[in-house]
Design a binder for these strands. Structure first.
Lengths: 157, 157
DNA sequence: CCAAATAGCGCACAGCTTGTGCGCAACTGG
DNA sequence: CCAGTTGCGCACAAGCTGTGCGCTATTTGG
C-alpha cells in the first residue's frame, strides 16, 4: 500500500482534481500540459491504484442548517478491547459525530462533532456521551470561526 | 445565507453527490427517481445557490506518504486583531496545517496537522509554532487510528 | 370559485466529453 | 545494437450534458 510511484504529471493531476474534480479532461490537460486522452488514462490508473479514493461534492454546512461545530476530547475508564468497541459503536451510530480518532496524548479520543445549534450539541454531550459507562471525562472546544479548511492533502516533495 | 428551501429531491441529490460526485445524471436520476435533465437543472441550481461549493477528488494519504496526523491545540498571549492576523498568516503558509479553527474553550485555536512522520511534525511544532512570539502553549494529540471519517455532512430531517 | 400565471416535469436533440485503438517515438535491458 | 516496453497524441465511436419545448399540477388573484 506504499510502493506506488507517482511522477510529476500524476502529482499535478492529483493536485488539480483535489481542488476541482468537475473539470473535463481537456481543461485538466491544459493545466497539466497533457492531452485529454492521457489525462483520462492516468485518472483511470490512479483510481485503480487507490490513490484516488473517490469523488465528492462539497456541501455548505449553513445551507443545511448546521450552525455549530466542535472539537471534543473524550477520556475512557478502561482500555480493554471490548470496552472500546462499545464506545466506538456509540460514535458510529450518531451522525453528529463526523470524525472520530483514537489518539495518543492527554485524551483517548478526539471527535469532530456537528450540530444544528448549541442545544442539540449539549443534548448529545449530556444525554449520550457522558452517560456512557466507560466515559470519564468530556472536554469540548466550540468552533467560532474556520481560518483554514483544506479539503484533502498537500502535494509531497 | 440561510433562506434556501430544499425539497426531498434536493436532499436526495446532495446526499448521493456527497458520496459520489462522478455519477452521470442518468445514474443520479435512477437513484433519486428523477429524469437526467432535471438532475442537471437541480445540480446547476444547487451550485448557483452555493449549497454545493465544489467537487473534489478524495486522495489516499498513505499513497502520498503522509503517515502522521495530529490534533494540536494552541494558546496565544494576546488577542488583538493584528496579533491574531500574524498567527493566522503562519497557519496559512504551512501546507501541513490542513484545518485551523478559532475556538471557544480551553484553547484559542485547534489545528488538524498532517505530516510525513513524527520528525517532520516535531520540526513544525518546535521550529515554527512554538517560536512564534504570540504562542504561549501548544498541546497535541497524535492520531493513532481513525474510527470514523465521514466526508461531508449528514442530511437534515 | 375559476381563470391566469407559475413552477416543475420529461422528451428530444445538438454539441461536447470520454475512453479506446492505433501508430509513433523514446527509453530499457540483454 | 536491437527487441521489448512504456508513454504519448490523434482520431473516432459511444455516451453524456444541458437547453428548448410542450405538458401538467399547483399557486395566485380577482
Amino acid at each position: 500500500m506504499h510502493g506506488i510511484s507517482l511522477d510529476r504529471y500524476d502529482l499535478a493531476i492529483l493536485s488539480v482534481l483535489q481542488k476541482n474534480s468537475a473539470l473535463t479532461n481537456s481543461e485538466l490537460g491544459e493545466r497539466v500540459s497533457l492531452s485529454p486522452s492521457q489525462c483520462s488514462r492516468r485518472k483511470a490508473r490512479l483510481e485503480a491504484e487507490g490513490v484516488i479514493k473517490g469523488y465528492s461534492a462539497r456541501l455548505d454546512a449553513n445551507s443545511l442548517g448546521f450552525g455549530l461545530r466542535a472539537i471534543t476530547r473524550v477520556n475512557l475508564k478502561a482500555h480493554g478491547e471490548s470496552m472500546d468497541d462499545d464506545f466506538v459503536t456509540l460514535l458510529t451510530k450518531h451522525a453528529m459525530v463526523r470524525e472520530a480518532y483514537s489518539v495518543s496524548g492527554d485524551a483517548d479520543y478526539v471527535l469532530h462533532v456537528i450540530a444544528k445549534d448549541l442545544t442539540e450539541f449539549s443534548d448529545f454531550i449530556h444525554h449520550h456521551l457522558l452517560p456512557h459507562p466507560n466515559v470519564t471525562q468530556v472536554r469540548s472546544e466550540i468552533i467560532l470561526r474556520s481560518m483554514k479548511e483544506e479539503q484533502g492533502l498537500p502535494m509531497p516533495k
